[in-house]
Nucleic acid binder design. Structure first.
Lengths: 194, 194
DNA sequence: CGAAAATTTGACATGACTCAACTGGAGTGG
DNA sequence: CCACTCCAGTTGAGTCATGTCAAATTTTCG
């Protein structure tokens, strides 16, 4: 198992000595998913926190009519999984599914608690992750309230320039809250402007 | 200063002995706001975490054209303030302003750190708050993606039946992401259905 | 290659916005 | 206590953004 990407990600937020790095790496196990496979199904309790080493996934929720609503895209160096379900050990309200072949590193809730006790500064690291997720969401809400679908799409492209190549259009449409048809015309229009 | 409401709120999540209650209460100071006064201005660093004892406030953000976008309403037994700004001690991206005369209890960042060290289980309490805020936001995003303004309004009334009496209509409209005019017609239509 | 899924395109329908005018209540000053 | 002003809220006409439905086209993948 190669944990280098994971370690270097952690080092961006807190410092670690060799001992701590070794302990940290030893608590993770690796997992692979083929495109289309589930990391979590809605209703499952999320037992692991997962770090994306390579690949990409979407987090989404189904409404009463069975329509998918994409909440987020996860790529390399992001943490997948339903954070809320993981922390509270209650059933997840959303699903996470690979949209490319994906390799993950996973840590269980118990091992994470162990880690907190032995190296308390990891608590800070994971709290920072949570905070980032929180503020990113707040931005997302704010954008949805204040700007048009076209502007949202342009912002989205700025933040994730690789989006059109990596994510299916219908998932991007869902993430932005528009129909695939309307997204198609948006894309054409915006493409001509640039 | 009367901290009973605050203490009983904390006791819903963690247990405390008398000693701990006393310490906790001693770290808070009270603050009053008249209707219309600011708790935080956009751009300020949020120095205190505030618990609403009585009254209500709105958290909002202004866009480039100067339009308000209401992000949240805060009433009794809620925590006001920009959590992100408080935790990271960076300038707030939103403002919080009283819409009724309001009484708050406040704790500073330093005192909160002291509290964490002396009674570590408070760390859990505040982390739970954060998690709740996170999941509430995720619900909000999900609703915005999947349901119409009319349905959102009906859901909102279910969650906050007191809303029409306590909050100005234009603020509710902004919270739901519609114009005051359209909100007015929504209200009429939904009122007739019920 | 063939079938299924994703994307595009066009006609039409509707939800939500803009603008403008009107109503009614809450101060404020004379 | 009245007249005046100032907002918040309402109403209606016209418009634009986005959705729906249906069909054509392209891509994906077994």
């Amino acid at each position: 198992m190669n944990a280098q990407l994971l370690i270097s990600n952690v080092l961006k937020h807190i410092s670690l000595d060799d001992e701590e790095k070794k302990l940290f790496a030893s608590l993770f196990t690796s997992k692979s998913l083929r495109s289309g496979e589930f990391l979590i199904h809605e209703g499952d309790v999320c037992k692991y926190e997962s770090f994306v080493v390579i690949g990409c996934l979407k987090a989404y929720k189904e409404d009463a009519e069975g329509n998918e609503h994409v909440l987020d895209f996860l790529i390399e160096e992001w943490w997948a999984d339903d954070l809320y379900s993981f922390l509270t050990q209650t059933p997840s309200k959303s699903s996470v599914r690979a949209i490319e072949d994906t390799k993950l590193l996973q840590i269980s809730k118990d091992d994470l608690e162990t880690l907190y006790q032995r190296v308390p500064k990891f608590e800070r690291f994971f709290r920072l992750l949570f905070q980032k997720a929180y503020i990113a969401q707040r931005e997302q809400i704010n954008q949805m309230l204040s700007i048009s679908a076209e502007e949202r799409y342009i912002q989205f492209l700025k933040r994730k320039p690789y989006a059109l190549e990596r994510f299916p259009q219908k998932d991007i449409a869902s993430y932005l809250g528009v129909t695939p048809q309307f997204f198609s015309s948006l894309k054409k229009k915006v493409g001509q402007l640039m």
